[in-house]
C-alpha cells in the first residue's frame, strides 16, 4: 500500500490568486475596450502613444504578471489532474514555468520598447 502524500498548504493561496488575477484581467480588458472605443486606436501613432503612457504601462505590466500567474495555476492544474508520474510532472511544471516566465519577460520588453 503506497502512502498518501498530500498536505502542501498552498491550495487556498493559489485558488485565491487565480480568482484575483482573473478579476484584474477582466478590469484591464474593459479599460482597453473603453480606450479603443474612445479612439485610442485611430492611428498607429495614437495607439503607440497610448500604450507608452506611464499609467498604461503600469497596468499592462500588472496584466502580464496576472496572466502569467493565472496561466501557471491553470496549466499546473491540468498536469495535476492527468499526469501521474512525479518525474514527468516536475519536468512539465518546469517547462511551463520557463515558457511563462519567458513570455512575461518578452511582453514586458515589448511594452518598454514603445
Amino acid at each position: 500500500m503506497s502512502r498518501l502524500v498530500v498536505g502542501a498548504h498552498y491550495g487556498v493561496k493559489d485558488w485565491l490568486a487565480q480568482r484575483i488575477t482573473a478579476v484584474l484581467m477582466a478590469i484591464y480588458t474593459l479599460v482597453i475596450f473603453a480606450a479603443v472605443l474612445a479612439g485610442a486606436t485611430s492611428s498607429h501613432d495614437a495607439w503607440r502613444g497610448f500604450m507608452a503612457h506611464g499609467v498604461v504601462r503600469f497596468v499592462t505590466f500588472l496584466f502580464i504578471i496576472s496572466l502569467g500567474y493565472h496561466a501557471w495555476v491553470g496549466v499546473r492544474d491540468i498536469w495535476m489532474d492527468y499526469i501521474k508520474p512525479t518525474s514527468i510532472r516536475i519536468l512539465l511544471h518546469v517547462l511551463t514555468l520557463l515558457v511563462l516566465i519567458g513570455y512575461a519577460g518578452w511582453a514586458i520588453q515589448i511594452i518598454w520598447r514603445l
Partner: peptide, 14 residues
C-alpha cells in the same frame, strides 16, 4: 481546515 488546504484534497474541485 488544515486537512483540506492542500491543492488536492479540496481544490481539485473545479
Amino acid at each position: 481546515l488544515d486537512n483540506l488546504e492542500d491543492p488536492y484534497r479540496l481544490f481539485r474541485c473545479h
